[in-house]
Design a protein around this nucleic acid. Structure first.
Lengths: 164, 164
DNA sequence: TCCAAATAGTTGAAAGTTAAAGTACTTCGT
DNA sequence: ACGAAGTACTTTAACTTTCAACTATTTGGA
């Protein structure tokens, strides 16, 4: 089935500029953020995983939940966990309540690793993003992207018929 | 050298919301756009490469230039070109002016392929992005991301000492 | 002119990602 | 309480991307 029913009239210059400025700047910004983390042997995606884990109670989360909130697939998380486990940053723990399941648990070493990276990362986010936005810009962006996000969720439900 | 000198004070709730809403929605949107193109055996990155090529005079561009404007690395472009060449969408042509160089040339088949995908893609961009923005939102976003982009370029120059 | 350095592009290997299938366990309906 | 279907997670294999090294050519001095 076609993913969209909107007729395909071309983008006008204003639309084009909004769209292209947005994706180009975003791609470059993400690249830069990733580059900034490279000094800590981390990618943005791995950072996200560790950050979420470090915020969890007991620095411990079910694999699925971690995958969900860090926005990576289960398969990818599995693979990355193997790498991070080898680095001594996390370990897996069996879940007694549901024996199919596992917890991802952050080790002290992992916590230190992300504690070390966090100031730089936050600095990058300011440096490359927030510092260039007025308070109003920040509020506008938050609103706009919140709208986009909920719309996306809506379309997802429509498309595959699943409600979660 | 540290990539940033900004002190690492934590993000306040407003900053946090702007940043997180932005990356989360962006990631999901990009995923969705990619998904929409999958029906045409294209990724967003490949689409971008072909779209740029189809816009070029003679549907023909030097590899480096194409890599630059489509925002992929030279190496990646080389590899993708091999795949697209096998699909019959592009071919390489020697450059007589600079015998180290090559042109990427879009074939008729390639042009047809992107012509087929374009309406859907434009539809997706409307559907998932533009339709949810007021005219003012579009203008604001264009301005903000333009600012971010030029800032990024500035930092890039600082960091590696290169001026291009 | 000659050579060192820079540039254009490709390549191969390593690392990362995804998609599909596999294992193990739980849930649900009867 | 049984079996089918569903869920949690992992694994394998195919594919993609990156990184560094390589070839070929051009450029820019001395």
């Amino acid at each position: 089935m076609a993913p969209t029913k909107t007729e395909a009239r071309w983008l006008n210059p204003r639309e084009m500029k909004a769209w292209r400025n947005y994706i180009i700047a975003s791609r470059r910004m993400l690249e830069a953020l990733d580059g900034d983390l490279a000094d800590y042997e981390l990618t943005l995606a791995d950072y996200e995983v560790l950050a979420q884990l470090s915020d969890a109670p007991g620095r411990k989360l079910r694999m699925s939940e971690l995958a969900e909130i860090a926005m990576v697939s289960k398969s990818r998380l599995s693979h990355r966990m193997k790498v991070m486990e080898a680095a001594g940053w996390v370990r897996r723990e069996e879940c007694p309540e549901d024996r199919r399941g596992y917890f991802a648990v952050m080790t002290d070493k992992g916590f230190k690793a992300i504690e070390r990276a966090a100031p730089t990362h936050v600095g990058s986010v300011r440096n490359r993003f927030l510092d260039h936005l007025s308070v109003k810009d920040q509020e506008d962006l938050a609103k706009i992207f919140d709208r986009l996000q909920s719309q996306l969720r809506g379309q997802f439900i429509e498309e595959d018929g699943t409600s979660k």
